[in-house]
Amino acid sequence: MKVGIVQFPGTNCEYDTQHAFSALGCETVILWHKEDSIPEGTDLVVVAGGFSYGDYLRSGAIAKMSPIMKALKQYANQGGKVLGICNGFQVLTETGLLPGALKRNEGLHFISRHHHLKVVANDNTFLRHCTQGEVVNIPIAHHDGNYFIDEEGLKKLHANNQILLQYTNKNGEIDNPNGSLESIAGICNESKNVFGLMPHPERAMESLLGSDDGRRMLEGFLNT
């Protein structure tokens, strides 16, 4: 299993992500944003979290102009699996690989803490080891995580089981930290090969550090 991890100037979760996938036994490679191709035999590309280009203009906006994004679009359009975490999710919506957009948090605060999430759909590669309705505990750390999509787009997400995760309390009841529409924390594209979420599963790999729920999520990409 070979995982490519995209690095822009300002990305800061690439080594956490690399550590997480290495711990799962994957071969990993960091892909500098100036590269214009995805290495042959890559099974998954992760667009890691951070603050690409200092979040200038809009989070993820300038990153979408990087050479690697053209290659990533092509990779995704050919069915390649892509996971965007936090800033990576913002980059994927800006690029148009995922629908909707991420706005400034409703309360305007940067939020950094553990948060419970409910698994809404598990009929996909990413969450196939989770059960529907299960509550996981994953850290969030973002300023622009307020998911928005127009009415028609939301209908499509529902119709095709593209809403992956919602922010909840530990009992699975809606608990919305940032104003996201329907408390949405993560989605996938219609073909279910491109995934994006604001929470950080790569930071939830050891129960000693608060939670290892992220391990089960990332394991979904193994042996597919």
Partner: peptide
């Protein structure tokens, strides 16, 4: 359209 605005929002 390309960069300065995100026309979704």
């Amino acid at each position: 359209e390309e960069l300065l605005a995100n026309t979704v929002i």
